[in-house]
């Protein structure tokens, strides 16, 4: 099949990839860029495991064509921590026991980071609404609410953290 060449910006790095026109963002980040933190759950937009940020908004990697995000800033779970320093959401999820099997966790963390960057002091209703598109079959959500509250409180006391932008130009010839 004819492939198309895309220039994508993922986690601050530039990538040039040759993919099928129908390749999704999920296909490209996992299989071409080998960023496997983003999970393939249902592949039909129900579970939220594949959530990434496109220009700061939560989007489903499985329902978004890679060709569409050319010129956008894509962020995956791999960009959340800063060096060895976990993001406040990651620390809070660990401390509160908000991750059990862990498969849904990257999706929740990305959804929550989009929420907290737009709404630093969310009401319980806003938190509930924000994570309504992410499914977790282990935790029962209570510990997640605690973790999100804790992270929000911590982020309000810390100076806003700008995501580290790498100027590294990575060129990978994807095979998809």
């Amino acid at each position: 099949m004819r492939k198309i060449l895309l220039r994508l910006r993922v986690n601050g790095a530039h990538h040039e990839v040759a993919v099928r026109p129908s390749a999704t963002v999920l296909d490209v980040v996992r299989d071409t860029l080998h960023l496997t933190g983003t999970k393939r759950g249902c592949d039909m937009g129900t579970c939220g495991c594949c959530t990434v940020l496109v220009d700061g908004r939560a989007r489903l990697g499985c329902l978004t064509l890679a060709a569409e995000v050319e010129g956008c800033e894509v962020r995956t779970i791999e960009s959340l921590r800063e060096g060895e320093q976990l993001h406040p959401l990651q620390s809070a999820f660990a401390e509160c026991g908000a991750a059990q099997c862990g498969f849904c966790t990257p999706g929740f963390l990305m959804t929550c980071s989009a929420l907290l960057s737009r709404t630093p002091t969310p009401t319980p209703e806003q938190v509930k609404d924000a994570i309504s598109g992410n499914l977790c079959r282990c935790t029962g959500y209570t510990k997640m609410y605690e973790a999100i509250d804790r992270a929000a409180a911590q982020m309000r006391t810390e100076p806003a953290r700008e995501p580290e932008l790498s100027s590294r130009e990575a060129v990978s010839g994807g095979s998809r």
Binding site: G45, G48, T51, R57, A58, R59, L60, L63, T64, T111, A114, L115, D129, A130, I131, S132, G133, N134
Partner: peptide, 9 residues
Amino acid sequence: IGGVQIRNR
């Protein structure tokens, strides 16, 4: 309609 991700899409 859907969660946030579906509404964004």
